[in-house]
Design a protein around this nucleic acid. Structure first.
Lengths: 352, 352
DNA sequence: CTGAAAGCGCTTACAG
DNA sequence: CTGAAAGCGCTTACAG
């Protein structure tokens, strides 16, 4: 086995071709346009020398000299390929990868930033490792607002997949229009004949949850219904049980909209245990498509989240930001969700 | 919005602390051990200066100076996050990611190398883009032997996930022991009472297919059965039909082992159409677990491929190669497969 | 104990 | 048309 060959450098090529490194660089990077004019025969010599030496530019050196390297970072606050919830990042990554491929960028996955507890950190002893890439796409549920804020303050270009708001520091993101989609779902439920529509969610206040709740209220208002605090049902964990359902029934509820996640199972279980037929006795709207769900054959009525598109748009946004010379403020894209017909919404048995 | 802040450099920190860049570098990188001795108060000043300026080292410059960058490349010959066959790379990536995380490396996904036809190339106009990373993990079905050979000749450190043989150029890989697992499966089928065991596969000659066929022959021999050319059934695409099955029955076959892929469905269909009970009339061994299959609840009897482990071991191997100063020849790891009991192997109805 | 200097391998104005 | 030079931001022997 031969020892590792000594890699040839630009200067080797230049020397062999009898030109300066500057000229070799120009030729090899095809910058011979406009004011720069190198005789074809000189160019030939450079190309021949490069070919003969098997020359390949050192991308790290190029990065340092040029100030950018064509790398797009991907940072997730949780392991990117989880074994348990394997579908979580997948659709986003499909979109990210395909956009990166189209635009000719490579992806840098930050996997080294483990904290040992399953979470990941952007800053490690003050160092922002993301800077290895020209900019980054961030994803994750358990994001750290502190780190995001530091990133914004540092002026590092990044796009979050999902709406994220930081008091006092605005960031760029691609998001799904949960509010609009939820309001539209309320419309559908209203049009099916329902007048008492409850909201069931978890006791958490992420941006996307807030959007859904806002959409719920807007949907009610829009249809001339009044928002009833008692119908807004936020439970810790997925603790929705028969008691809770009984209370809703007594309040005249004939339809519920439910956030995605384990809470859906809890609601279905409660219905089953109480012998409530879905959608006969209780219509059910789901506020997003569960992960891994094939939207075209979904049992649940609701809407699907454009996850791939969110990923792809994040890449486009980021690259646009990188190509701008000056900072134009945070960039945002809000994408519509697709209604999913499903079979869990029907007319109420008896109109209120 | 404030304009992007001017990033502070090491020299800024050094100046503010009243030391040379060299000293600042030493302190910041915690290289003050052994012969290097810097008074605590000086160190304090450096740290204070760095904190005050919000200094973050430029990883690109560090890479250039150090000669390596802590990046592990991941190159797939097909899109890494396929929409259709979404499970293909997934288990490997789980292993790769988790090993990279453990060992503190970041992953560089080469997504820019599209050829437009769904395939990807390592070399683009002579440039090996993989060199952005210190070394790379390669995966893929439709690998290009030419590119692999060029990579070996170039001395670029890489590990293939899956056995790959190149005449005249040896490469490093992690593989599953298909031969051993197949032979062991033949043992199980033999022990269930079968004496005429056919092999059904596709008309392709990948390394892993050859391994399985070799294992089949070894398994037969090992049990005192003779290899019968007629029982080796290699069909183009997944074209296994009733005619083919009929022929096997006439040859006295009571059990078949089948390569993974669409061919399994073809075999099952043929059985169904001919009203052959599995495993009553025909026992079935599957040579690997289909992608996305949960091995602990598999219907199919056979074995499962240690895909995650293959990915993780590839990372370990690669890093070992990178840390060696001299080249020690190709590194290889062959991992055992896990038997899967399943319910498609039973005693033949009538012993031959 | 710490600084000056060279070097990592490129690119990019700037001269001529 | 092309070269010499400076510079990208670090690290690492080498002196002292």
């Amino acid at each position: 086995m031969s020892a590792k060959k000594q890699r040839s450098r630009l200067s080797d090529v230049a020397q062999l071709a009898g030109v300066s490194p500057a000229t070799a660089s120009l030729v090899l990077n095809k910058r011979v346009t406009g004011n720069v004019r190198i005789p074809p025969e000189t160019q030939e010599r450079v190309f021949a020398a490069a070919a003969k030496l098997g020359y390949v530019a050192n991308p790290v050196a190029q990065s340092l000299a040029k100030g950018r390297n064509g790398l797009l970072g991907v940072f997730t606050f949780e392991a990117i390929f989880p074994i348990t919830q394997r579908d979580f990042y997948y659709p986003f990554l499909v979109g990210i990868e395909s956009a990166a491929e189209t635009l000719g960028y490579d992806l840098l996955l930050f996997t080294s930033a483990s904290t040992g507890d399953g979470r990941r950190r952007i800053y490690r002893n003050g160092q922002n490792r993301l800077r290895l890439a020209d900019g980054a796409i961030l994803l994750g549920i358990e994001d750290s607002k502190d780190e995001l804020r530091a990133l914004v303050e540092e002026g590092y270009p990044f796009v979050f997949v999902g709406r994220r708001e930081l008091p006092g520091a605005e960031l760029s993101y691609t998001a799904a229009d949960y509010a609009g989609a939820t309001a539209a779902l309320i419309d559908r439920i209203y049009n099916a004949g329902h007048r008492r529509i409850a909201y069931i969610g978890v006791d958490q206040h992420t941006e996307s949850a807030l959007d859904r709740r806002r959409g719920y209220q807007e949907g009610l208002l829009h249809n001339g219904l009044t928002f009833d605090e008692e119908l807004m049902c936020l439970v810790p964990d997925a603790r929705f049980d028969q008691t809770a359902m009984q209370k809703l029934l007594e309040l005249g509820v004939t339809a519920v909209v439910v956030e995605i996640g384990p809470i859906i199972s809890a609601v279905l279980n409660a219905c089953k245990e109480m012998a409530l037929d879905v959608p006969g006795d209780m219509s059910l709207g789901v506020l997003g498509n569960p992960f891994g769900d094939m939207e075209d054959m979904s049992y649940f009525s609701g809407f699907s989240i454009p996850r791939e598109e969110m990923g792809a748009q994040a890449v486009h946004l980021l690259i646009r930001m990188l190509n701008e010379n000056s900072f134009h403020g945070p960039q945002r894209v809000v994408l519509p969700c697709t209604p999913v017909t499903g079979s869990t919404i029907a007319a109420p048995r008896s109109r209120a």
